[in-house]
Structures are given as structure tokens and as C-alpha cells.
Simulated scan of single mutants.
Amino acid sequence: MLGAAGLGAAVALAQVAVVHLVIDNTADEALAERVEGYTVWSSIAAGLVMVLLAAGLAAWVGRRALEPVGRMARTATEWSQHDLDRRFALGPPTDEIRALGATLDTLLDRVSQVILGEQRLTAELAHELRSPLTTIRATADLVAMRPDLDDQLREDVDDILAACHEMAATMTGLLHLARTGRAHSDEQTDVSSAVAAASNGPGHDRITLSEGADLVLAAPAALAARAIGPVLDNATRLADHVVVRAVARAGWIEIEITDDGPGVPSGIREVLFEPGRSGGSGSGLGLSLARRVARSFGGDVTLAPAVPGAGATFLVRLPAA
């Protein structure tokens, strides 16, 4: 651009020199002044045109040079655990940008290997746990068939069978999730059923579903409960009242879980969803698994910003049917 401006200035100076030469050899001063004025304005116009052309050329060259960066940005935005094979693929590293793309492709290879290893581990654990669970369920079935059980013992056995059935459904879903990277989405359940399945532990009587009970989720009840349950468990363990509110927004259902407990300490807010991190006596695996299940549907589990004097508020986002 500066080169074009300098060239325009040189042309203008040359034209002015010619004009002065004409003036020196012209008797008509009025004509000479008009020629000088025309020359100056034409020089300015030529300079502006050259500057605009130089700016357009610079913009075109800049766009062509940065096109790989834009493609990398779009690929990075769309990359997820469901697209582990996607790469930037800018070609041979013939320049700095393509070399950066090749380096990032190598990094993505390593990240995908870690994710695949985690999925394999989850699949192996779910598979190994199914055998003892089947044994427990078979034994409970045999006990339930005995005619000498009193009412209390029969109720306890029924509770064991119900828990076995729920665990089997959850493990089947987790096994499918680990193998494919995606949860089942052809089954549906309403928010009320999902919350009921997720709040069958101690303190369930302190949970109130205030809004959106009839909203339908594009998820099976067992996996929806896995995304909601750990949040409800933490809330009922630390608070006296828990309010659940579901709202439909643009193809999603946002389930807001608010409690009147002490809230989440500021020191662990940033790492709360990391496996093994816990603000209490728990193992720290519940929230991380809840987030993973929700993200398998494309949703998420997040912690809302802290409000002074209030408890904690979690948002569980799941697809709407």
C-alpha cells in the first residue's frame, strides 16, 4: 500500500513538473492555471485509485493466506468426542500455518487415543459388573419365590429386584455409550419420570418438581436419571429443600436444580466436575459421570454462578423429544 502511494506521489510530481514546463512556455496565464488545476486533481485521483487497488490486493492476499486458519477454527469448533477421526488436514507442512496444522493433528491423535482408552475402560467395567449383578438378581428372584417370607422381608426383596433392574438398564446404556460414544436417543421419557427415577434415595421427600413435569426428553429414563441423579443426591445430602424446574428452550430441556444448602465452596467450583474431586465425603465420580452422560446426548451439566447467601444451582440440559 505504501509502495502504491509513493508511486502515485511520483506520478503527481512528474505531472506538476510538466505543467510548470508548459507554463514557462505559455503566454496565456489563465490557460496555464487551468492546466495546472486539472493536472493536480488528476494526480490526486490517480493516487487514490492506486491506493484503493493496493488495499484490495492486500486484502485478497491476506484472505488467501489466512484461509487455512479459518478452516482450522471451524474444524476446532465442530470437533468433539463424536468426531475423533476429524483432523485439520491442511496438507504437507510447506509453510508455518500448515506446519501448525500438522502439529495440531498429531495432538488430536493423542487426545483421541486417550478418549478411546477411557471408552474401552468404561466398556470393560460395565461388562465385568454385569455378571455379579446378574447373580444378585437371580438370587433375589429365588428368594422372592419362597412362600415363607413375611411382608417386610418380601418388600425388601422387591426393593433389591427393582434396584437390580435399574442398575442393569443403566449399565446397558453406559455400555452402549462407551462402545459408540453416543447414548440411545430413540427412547423418550418425561421429566417427572426421570426425576422420580433419579430421586429414589434418602431425602427424596425434600425434592419438589415445581415446573415442566410433562416435558418429554429424547432420552431413556435410566440414562436421564444418571444425568440428574448425582446432582439431586448432592443437594439432598446438604440441603433441607430442593426445587427442580424444567423449561423447554430451542429443542432442549433445561432442568434447573436449586437447593438451600451452603453452596459450592469457591475453591472447588472450577474442578467440581473432574473425576475424583469432591467437596464432601463422596468419591467425586457422580458429577463427572452425570456430565458425561448428558454430553453423550449433546447436552451438559453445569454449575450456575454463585449467589451470595443462597445455595447451589445446577443446570442439566438434555434434548427435547
Rank of each mutant, 00 (worst) to 15 (best):
P265C: 03
S266T: 12
D260A: 06
G263E: 00
L285D: 14
I257F: 09
S266E: 09
P275W: 02
S278L: 05
S288V: 05
G267N: 09
G263Q: 01
G286W: 01
P265G: 13
L272N: 07
L285V: 11
P275L: 03
G282D: 09
V271G: 13
G280N: 06
A290E: 05
V271T: 15
L272T: 07
S278D: 11
I268N: 03
V271Y: 12
G276Y: 02
L285R: 09
L272S: 00
S288W: 00
G263Y: 01
R295T: 15
G282M: 00
S283K: 15
G279S: 14
L272H: 01
G267C: 08
S266W: 04
T258N: 04
G276K: 09
F273A: 02
I268M: 06
R277W: 13
R277T: 10
V293Y: 13
P265R: 09
D260E: 07
G276T: 06
R269D: 01
S266V: 08
G263D: 00
R292T: 14
R292I: 14
G267K: 02
L289N: 14
L287K: 04
D260L: 06
T258W: 07
S278E: 08
T258A: 13
S281T: 15
P265L: 04
G263T: 06
E270Q: 14
R295D: 15
G286D: 02
T258E: 13
P275V: 08
P275R: 03
A290G: 08
G267V: 12
T258P: 07
A294I: 10
R291S: 13
E274N: 13
G279D: 07
S283A: 12
E270H: 14
G267L: 02
R295G: 14
S281H: 12
F273R: 10
V271C: 10
R269L: 00
R292P: 06
L289Q: 12
G280A: 10
A290C: 11
L287P: 04
G267Y: 02
S281E: 14
D259S: 02
S278P: 08
F273N: 04
A290I: 01
P262F: 03
S283F: 15
R291P: 07
G261H: 08
G280R: 08
R269A: 01
V293K: 03
V293P: 15
L287E: 05
S288E: 00
S283T: 15
R277P: 03
E270N: 05
G263S: 01
L287N: 02
P265H: 02
G280P: 08
E274A: 11
R291W: 11
P262V: 05
G279M: 13
R277H: 13
R295V: 12
G286E: 04
R292K: 15
L289K: 10
G276N: 04
G276I: 04
T258I: 07
I268E: 09
G284E: 09
G267E: 11
F273P: 08
A294P: 05
L287C: 00
D259K: 11
T258M: 05
S288Y: 00
P275N: 05
L287G: 00
E270V: 12
P275T: 12
S283P: 02
